[in-house]
Design a protein around this nucleic acid. Structure first.
Length: 483
RNA sequence: GCCCCCAUCGUCUAGAGGCCCAGGACACAUCCCUUUCACGGAUGCGACAGGGGUUCGAAUCCCCUUGGGGGUACCA
């Protein structure tokens, strides 16, 4: 049997991080097998809540993560006739029937059950309506929903690939289930089963929140004369407090992680590591590598909390592994978003050197613009501590002398080594501590007391032709002399 | 309420009866490196939820309790 798995997001919201993780597991499992197929299906049967912009977001998010699929996207909204046909078939076979209950009647029923201390459920009251009763309801203008008959008591069992055997008594399924709404629209459980049968899905890998749907779907498979696929229910991702992940936790959609400066390969890596671990214990890996190792026996059964620290760390590791050219490419959108004009930057190696210079100090791409601002924006701002440093006695004079010596150094030849002699010379001639000079130099050049490697920054700045003027500008920062 | 799932350091996890007075990673602390901040290196702190069994022996198997999560729609 060939391996065919699918990710089936519903476009009622942006691509959720939990959905992305499910996609990762499916992708890994498909790619673990030489003939594995990963299929994308958009479950847009809910007309009111589904929106095209969410579909776009989901497709873009999956593409950004590089979770490519072999078939699809298949839209359920294009398969409505097929569902309708299956509903008719179940009706004809007597496995489903029309239920004319109104919303009010159902609510009343559930309220009574609750008052009696019982679990709310549909009491199958319209399962055996007579032709006359049916006519009467139709006469009232009532539009029926279609319910699928769930025989009770009966035990439904499946061997979950992650959790082992799970047993479910059909008495706990809530009564005969609605498979099509009053407007004829098929509902989730029916559509999923029909699709998974038609698409020959071999393994349904999805979140734990679907465990309760599984017995209902197995019953549907049986009614449709199909062998159910294998099921694997993965643990959920919880927020750091152990609660359901929500917008309040910083980010829930993949697009937000992208905006926050995470690399897709880092996010994927982290997602794969939540509730799964490779046999060799290695925590940094590509998904291709993980695919060769992936199997359900190494998937944990307990929910995992989302840990920003760990994600940040993984991201920083990936950023450092990127080669300079790749790094510049990834950084460019963030630099542009910060408003930097990259078209005026010096010849080729300059930007690469800059990217490499700041790469060791960042954990996310968004941290790059503030760190490289002094090299990419002509106008320099000073922090208060930097100003204080520059106003210390003797500093302006020392920096002015360095500026003077700098003029003799052709910018294109500037390197940390060629820029050292002027500094040493000033230390000697002015009898000022080297530590003070270095600190002041940083303040004058970058406007701050901390940042990337000073000499490397100095070289880049001089190559750009900005070093001399920045050193000279220090004089104007001094408070006006008393009259 | 009812049903289902889960339970190892703060977090992610290794562990499928003796190799474990429990290993790794992140975080945290200290030190080293570095005329900055980081990176990197070293060291440290730190857990088998509780109670019963089974067994010569239990983090590992069983039961109960407790705790957490999920579900209980004419949503998916």
């Amino acid at each position: 049997m060939s391996i065919r798995v699918r990710i089936a997001p519903s476009p009622t919201g942006n691509l959720h991080i939990g959905t992305a993780r499910t996609a990762v597991f499916n992708w890994l499992y498909a790619h673990h097998h030489p003939d594995g197929q990963f299929i994308l299906r958009i479950e847009d049967t809910d007309r009111e809540r589904s929106q095209p912009r969410y579909t776009r977001n989901i497709l873009a998010g999956l593409a950004w993560l590089g979770l490519d699929w072999q078939e699809g996207p298949i839209y359920q909204s294009n398969r409505l006739d097929r569902y309708q046909q299956v509903v008719e078939q179940l009706l004809e076979q007597g496995l489903a029937y029309r239920c004319y209950c109104t919303e009010a009647e159902l609510e009343e029923m559930r309220a009574a059950q609750k008052a009696a201390g019982k679990a709310p459920r549909y009491d199958n009251r319209h399962r055996y309506l007579t032709e006359a009763e049916r006519q009467a309801y139709e006469g009232e203008g009532r539009k029926p929903v279609i319910r699928f008959r769930i025989e009770e008591p009966q035990e439904v069992t499946w061997n979950d690939l992650i959790r082992g055997e799970i047993r479910w008594n059909t008495q706990d399924l809530g009564g005969d289930m609605v498979i099509a709404r009053a407007d004829g629209q098929a509902l989730y459980n029916l559509a999923v089963v029909v699709d998974d049968i038609d698409m020959q899905i071999s393994h349904v890998i999805r979140g734990e929140d679907h465990i309760g749907n599984t017995p209902k779907q197995i019953l549907l498979y049986q009614a449709l004369g199909s062998q159910p696929p294998a099921f694997a229910h993965s643990p959920l991702i919880l927020n750091p407090e152990g609660k359901k992940l929500s917008k309040r936790d910083g980010a829930t959609s993949v697009a937000e992680f992208q905006q926050m400066g995470f690399l897709p390969e880092a996010l994927k890596n982290y997602l794969a590591l939540l509730s799964w671990s490779p046999p060799d214990g290695e925590e940094l890996f590509t998904l291709d590598k993980a695919a060769t190792l992936f199997d359900f026996d190494r998937v944990n059964r307990s929910a995992a909390r989302f840990d920003w620290d760990k994600l940040n760390w993984i991201n920083s590791q990936y950023i450092r592994q990127l080669d300079a050219g790749e790094l510049v490419e990834r950084l460019t959108p963030f630099w542009q978003a910060a408003g930097f004009d990259l078209s005026t930057v010096p010849q080729s190696p300059w930007l690469l050197t800059l990217a490499q210079l700041i790469s060791e100090g960042i954990t996310r791409l968004t941290e790059a613009p503030p760190l490289s601002r002094f090299l990419l924006e002509p106008k320099l701002g000073y922090t208060l501590p930097a100003l204080e440093q520059l106003r210390m006695a003797g500093v302006a004079t020392a920096l002015a002398e360095i500026a003077q010596l700098l003029v003799a150094i052709e910018p294109s030849t500037a390197t940390p080594d060629t820029l050292k002699p002027p500094i040493d010379q000033v230390v000697k001639t002015q009898g000022i501590k080297k530590g003070v000079v270095m600190k002041s130099l940083r303040a004058a050049l970058t406007g701050d007391l901390q940042g990337p490697d000073l000499m490397a920054s100095f070289a880049l700045l001089h190559q750009r032709g900005w070093a001399v003027e920045r050193l000279q500008a220090v004089a104007s920062l001094l408070p006006a002399p008393p009259p």
